[in-house]
Design a protein around this nucleic acid. Sequence first.
DNA 1: CGTAACTTGTGAACTAATTCACAAGCCCTC
DNA 2: GAGGGCTTGTGAATTAGTTCACAAGTTACG
Lengths: 210, 210
Amino acid sequence: MRRIAESTVRRLSIYLSFLEEIEARGVTTTSSDDLARLGGTTSAQVRKDLSFFGSFGKRGLGYSVPELSSRLREILGLGRQWKVGIIGAGKIGAALARYAGFAERGFVVTAVYDADPAKVGNKSGSVAIRSMERLEPDTREGRFDIAVLTVPAEAAQGIVDRVVKSGIRAILSFAPTQLSVPADVTLRTVNMAMELEGLTFALTNKGSDN
Amino acid sequence: MRRIAESTVRRLSIYLSFLEEIEARGVTTTSSDDLARLGGTTSAQVRKDLSFFGSFGKRGLGYSVPELSSRLREILGLGRQWKVGIIGAGKIGAALARYAGFAERGFVVTAVYDADPAKVGNKSGSVAIRSMERLEPDTREGRFDIAVLTVPAEAAQGIVDRVVKSGIRAILSFAPTQLSVPADVTLRTVNMAMELEGLTFALTNKGSDN
DNA sequence: CGTAACTTGTGAACTAATTCACAAGCCCTC
DNA sequence: GAGGGCTTGTGAATTAGTTCACAAGTTACG
């Protein structure tokens, strides 16, 4: 398969969430134009995005909503349940552990870790907090597929190295720091400070550009 | 000023965070090569990014750390304090309201809102939770510059419309839905589901590509 | 069955972003 | 003050991503 741009994958997620929405409302057919309008892009972009994976529509008619959403779920790897381990049971970690949106998409939190011995054993949502020492054995036993990092910036790289070494290949980090991983590991970072700075940049430079 | 790519702005944030880090360690000089290595990019990219805003280095020598970090803060609009209003005092909203990283970067949470009357008046961090009805008057009085949305997907567009109408020009949304704003409003969206789907896509399609 | 009205799928054209590559400038040493 | 060793700043070349534009299907209808 040709390399797929991250922007394309993001849009596929958007298309899928609309498809699920209109599917729930009983709509059975849609078009690239509908998807584009709802997703803030163009119909050509929608068709091009889908064309990387096959051809799912009928000329003159459009797309079958159930079929396309099922194909997108498959493409995005949502046909199975994914186990998520949350590392760091602070405010954000705890909020995520309880976040219902996880389950709706097939993600289940199977472990929460914290370095603070006082927290170990407490429940975070429905999951007991585990000691950081469990990280390697748990990972090797396949207790989770995806690591979500909600630890302080200083600790993040060390933990990334540990979970990568014991076999994790997908990491979502909320730590406000640049992390490095081997080429075969996928890392996504959500950095609040960076998002806010994008906004202040725009506020500060509005008018002079557009 | 020529239109600046979002990717460039994101990298400027990264460069700045490194500069602050090494500045704290007493380093006084750096090079595009250092910044590139730490930020996971190339030295040509660093120089090109900076070149959109001026020329801040000395050939043969590199960049003065204090000078460059100060210029970047200025470019990113961090020379002043920004007031943030958090709309939605659920788990994520509450976690953000207490998030110390905010203050470090010059952001101060001046208001927290919630639609649930039972929550109004309670404290979230050091700020009292206000009624949603206060949104318009508060916004018009300049109580906050940036709106952070942590409300359910269904409520998000309505609130965006309200704050935009009363003058807000920068919004950071955590609602898992596509939002639309006028061209003069900057919107950034953080969507957990989308990030996780980016990971499952990669996990599912590894091997066949790279 | 023919034609009109649609909508997809996709090369080709275009636009945006990144990387290359090198002249220009700076510091240091002799 | 000339030469060597560095590193910036930036046009040019390249690569990546988006948009255009249209042939090829599909349905509806007379």
